[in-house]
């Protein structure tokens, strides 16, 4: 680049002077704009998994503890008892009502489909 002429130097000096005179409000807004732009660099989602590790571990341990210490499960009715009920001569009430029977047949068909 060739050396700047006096005219170029002078115009540059004047523009620099004008820039140095920027008022406080403008400077403040420029600073705010810079901070807003730089804030984009921070991505709060990037470390989300690390913050959930302790809580997840605690929850898993708690579930495990409940499963281990909750005691024996209640007895399940044996299939033989179910057979006795079904084979009982006294039919359940709903079988006696013809209208209800139709309804239950329709409902059973709906379930199958």
């Amino acid at each position: 680049m060739t050396d700047p002429t006096d005219f170029e130097k002078r115009t540059r000096e004047v523009l620099e002077e004008s820039t140095a005179r920027l008022d406080g409000r403008t400077q403040s807004r420029l600073t705010q704009a810079r901070h807003a732009a730089l804030a984009q660099l921070e991505n709060p989602a990037r470390n989300w998994w690390r913050s959930y590790v302790p809580a997840g571990a605690a929850a898993a341990v708690a579930v495990l503890a409940v499963v281990i210490w909750s005691g024996p499960t209640p007895p399940v009715a044996s299939p033989v008892e179910d057979m006795e009920i079904l084979a009982d001569a006294e039919a359940p009430d709903f079988v006696e009502d013809a209208e209800d029977l139709e309804f239950y047949e329709w409902a059973a068909g709906e379930v199958e489909t």
Partner: peptide
């Protein structure tokens, strides 16, 4: 580095 760069240009950029 960006903060430094932007501070160095912001006034002239505004002008």
């Amino acid at each position: 580095a960006l903060d430094q760069f932007l501070s160095s240009v912001e006034r002239r950029a505004f002008k």
